[in-house]
């Protein structure tokens, strides 16, 4: 079944517009945003645009020094999404060492969910995730599909340094830290797979719309 989601645009900078989908259901909204991003990428002249999906939005910006031809964008007023559809992106599997030094928050997250560590791992590794968007730092994927029991607010005190490869959760999202950065997410485990390599094209391993599974190592 197809559903139509209304789309509203506003100018966010001199040569940038932000299109936001009027949808509170993030899984559906994210698929709508991916569909919108794909439609924009198919417009003539789109190679000169930066197209940045958010969880239910798409930011479109002209390259430095160029004017944004916004007409065809502003003319898009709604986006059609399959209600029970699945993302068509590439599927990736990440081997994860759960708990221990690489996952110092596993016990606390499990306790908050009223689960044993083993049950929390089974829950996290049992889900199929979709990359809603990539942001925060190079290659950092925001994954939707986290089981509700594992959803917790961010840590009160962010860590000044989260190791690269940390598999983490915060709010409705699961994620993986590609670089050692400051971070406030709960760390469940660690993966050795590189998520970002500036010598690769594209440099980010994951893209909006891709699917992700975690496999206990």
């Amino acid at each position: 079944m197809e559903t139509r989601i209304p789309l509203a645009w506003r100018w966010a900078a001199e040569e940038a517009v932000l299109g936001t989908l009027a949808c509170e259901e993030w899984d559906l909204a994210a698929r709508g945003a991916h569909g919108l991003a794909a439609r924009i990428a198919a417009l003539p002249g789109a190679e000169a645009l930066e197209i940045v999906p958010g969880v239910r939005s798409v930011l479109v910006r002209a390259r430095e020094g160029e004017a944004l031809a916004a007409g065809p964008l502003l003319a898009m007023r709604e986006i059609e999404v399959a209600k029970d559809g699945e993302s068509a992106g590439t599927e990736h599997r990440f081997a994860v060492g759960y708990g221990g030094a690489g996952g110092p928050d596993l016990a606390a997250v499990a306790a908050a969910a009223g689960l044993s560590g083993r049950e929390a791992v089974a829950l996290h590794a049992g889900a199929l995730y979709t990359v809603a968007f990539v942001g925060f730092s190079p290659g950092f994927p925001y994954l939707l599909g986290l089981p509700p029991a594992l959803r917790l607010p961010r840590r009160q005190a962010p860590r000044p340094r989260v190791p690269a490869g940390s598999v983490a959760v915060a709010g409705p999202f699961a994620g993986i830290y590609p670089q050692a950065t400051p971070g406030g997410w709960h760390l469940l485990g660690h993966t050795e797979t590189a998520l970002f390599d500036p010598r690769r094209e594209p440099p980010a391993l994951l893209a909006a719309g891709d699917r992700v599974r975690f496999v206990p190592a």
Partner: peptide, 14 residues
């Protein structure tokens, strides 16, 4: 230099 456009969707600022 004057920046690295084109990779924001991969989380790379200019």
């Amino acid at each position: 230099d004057l920046g690295r456009p084109g990779h924001r969707a991969g989380g790379v600022p200019a």
